[in-house]
């Protein structure tokens, strides 16, 4: 099956950072979330995934970070087939992927610092390095004053920016952002997009799932639209 899938890959000299080939995801009993989706993202590319709610954007991002497993099809990240990776290899790969979840997935009783530091702690980075990076990210997102506040005490918009800071903490190879500006005003949306552009300029591949037209209009980045599980 893999051979058939590989044959259907578009002809390229080198593999893209993300290869999604004919991926279908069906939730039991028969809810088709994605249907034969194929997508290729190059290293250092910024891609927008658009479409209405329920179109399958979140599902696609969940498949890319192996939070879900596809029913059919092949997903490769940096040459690693997600279907065949061992548990440990998946964890190592996740360390190189930053995800800003739509529901944030912050730990409310931990401080802002502790939440953002988590992915760096997982990689055993030095405390000095962690402190420097967290301070830098909070300054860029206009949240310096919230460093020691419990994440649960912040507003939705602030929590969203903390989730983005956490995803960006390790300057990941691949950054997946699910509706990253859903709770933000125009000013803070600008700060978030500046951070994404900076990461992208430094080599991170970024996939942003959004239905906020303001963030992709007028840009020359590729844009894909998902409608009822199909990619256009």
């Amino acid at each position: 099956m893999l051979e058939t899938l590989n044959e259907s890959l578009p002809p390229h000299d080198h593999p893209g950072l993300v290869e999604i080939v004919k991926v279908t995801k069906i939730y039991p009993p028969d809810v088709v979330a994605l249907k034969n989706v194929s997508l290729r993202a190059e290293k250092g590319e910024l891609i927008f995934l658009t479409g209405p709610s329920g179109a399958g954007k979140t599902t696609l991002l969940k498949l890319l970070c192996r939070q879900e497993i596809p029913t059919k099809g092949l997903i490769e990240i940096d040459g690693n087939d997600l279907n065949t990776l061992s548990d440990n290899a998946i964890q190592k790969l996740r360390q190189r992927i930053g995800v800003a979840y739509q529901d944030f997935k912050l730990l409310p009783r931990l401080s802002v610092f502790q939440n953002i530091a988590m992915p760096m702690e997982v990689q055993f980075k030095s405390l000095k390095e962690i402190r420097h990076r967290v301070t830098e990210l909070l300054a860029k997102l206009g949240l310096s004053a919230k460093l020691n506040k419990p994440a649960g005490k912040l507003s939705r918009g602030e929590q969203q920016r903390i989730a983005i800071a956490r995803a960006a903490a390790n300057s990941p190879l691949l950054l997946l952002a699910d509706e990253p500006t859903g709770n933000l005003d125009a000013g803070t949306t600008g700060l978030v997009m500046d951070l994404f552009r900076e990461l992208n300029d430094n080599g991170s591949t970024i996939i942003i799932a959004t239905h906020d037209e303001s963030i992709y209009q007028g840009t020359n980045h590729r844009k894909f639209e998902l409608q009822q599980g199909e990619l256009f």
Binding site: C65, Q67, D87, N88, Q91, K92, L93, R94, Q95, R96, I97, V99, K105, L106, L107, M118, P119, V122, Q123, R166
Partner: peptide, 10 residues
């Protein structure tokens, strides 16, 4: 769960 999503090993 969050630690697993962030790549924490066993």
């Amino acid at each position: 769960k969050v630690l697993r999503y962030l790549g924490a090993t066993n």
